[in-house]
Design a protein around this nucleic acid. Structure first.
Length: 138
DNA sequence: GCCAACGTTGGC
DNA sequence: GCCAACGTTGGC
């Protein structure tokens, strides 16, 4: 199936990019929002994922990929219906892309990160994904 | 620290 | 089923 593109958001205090890199792979659990959950369920192995650190420093830190598709979130009873995925860290962006940069970029004006700031798992268009990676490669 | 956006809860 | 109250998230 066609490769999809995503952005996941996390507060560094909860799970930092550096921790993710050190772990290599992690279970992305704790999502308690229906829209975000539906996005998790739609992920396929090999999909590309951007990792955004909210609050401080408000930057896209790096690239990950879906290592395992959705399974019941192990932190809550399975009958509650929440899911988790496994993500693998791929590489850091040479230069993190700040929220301010994203907001200032015309090509990224419509991304959910701006339009719906509270959503923690969101789809990206390939063009949006590529643009952020490009900005992070400068 | 404040406030806007949004989701959830509970009274009716 | 509507809507006000409240809680949470996250930008500023």
């Amino acid at each position: 199936m066609k490769k999809q593109y995503w952005l996941v958001k996390q507060e560094p205090e909860t799970y930092a990019w550096a921790t993710f890199v050190a772990d290599g792979q992690t279970v992305w659990d704790g999502v308690r929002n229906f829209q975000a959950r539906n996005n998790l369920k739609a992920m396929q192995a090999g999909d590309a994922v951007l990792f955004y650190a909210s609050m401080d420093p408000r930057q896209v830190m790096g690239i990950a990929e879906v290592a395992q598709t959705a399974f019941p979130d192990p932190t809550v009873p399975a009958d509650e219906g929440w899911v988790a995925v496994k993500l693998r860290a791929v590489r850091a962006l040479r230069q993190p892309v700040t929220l301010a940069t994203i907001k200032a970029d015309k090509a990224l004006a419509d991304i959910a990160l701006i339009r719906q700031s509270r959503l923690s798992v969101m789809p990206l268009l390939r063009a949006e994904f590529d643009r952020i990676v490009q900005l992070g490669s400068a």
